[in-house]
Computed example of a mutant assay.
Amino acid sequence: MRRRHHFHTDHLGHSVSATVQTGHTVVVEVLVDGKETGYATTRKDVPVTVTIELPTDPPTSASVLAAAGPDGPHVTFTAPDAEPRPMPPRPY
């Protein structure tokens, strides 16, 4: 059964959202300020990293690591100027 999980964080004044669709194949979509900037698929038990770019001047590279676990997916946001931090779930 497929299920969608939503996560969100803010960084440098920009909104970063991730949607993880679980099932046999895990689909990860990442939006920055409402625009899709990253997409990846993986098997159920393999974590996946999606590299994104924040529209700062100059652009800032960042990444979102998604791992589907037995108790639901976990998503971590990483940027070079900040410690990695978990993205909290966002109910829809």
Rank of each mutant, 00 (worst) to 15 (best):
G69W: 02
S15V: 06
V46E: 12
R90H: 15
P88L: 15
R4S: 15
A67F: 13
P55W: 02
P73N: 11
V75G: 09
A18V: 02
D71K: 14
P84I: 11
D45V: 11
D45M: 12
H14D: 03
P80V: 09
P80W: 10
D45H: 11
P80A: 03
V20S: 01
H24I: 09
T60D: 01
L54W: 02
P80C: 09
V46Q: 12
G23F: 06
D81P: 00
L31A: 11
G69S: 12
Y39Q: 02
V48N: 02
K44M: 13
V20W: 05
R90K: 15
P89L: 12
K35I: 08
A62T: 00
T9R: 07
G69L: 14
H11N: 03
R4E: 14
T78Q: 11
F7P: 03
T76C: 03
P58I: 09
T56H: 06
T56I: 05
V48D: 02
G34L: 01
V64F: 00
V48S: 03
D81Q: 14
H8F: 10
E83N: 13
S17K: 11
T56K: 06
P91K: 15
V26H: 01
K35S: 08
P73G: 10
G13R: 03
D45R: 11
T76S: 07
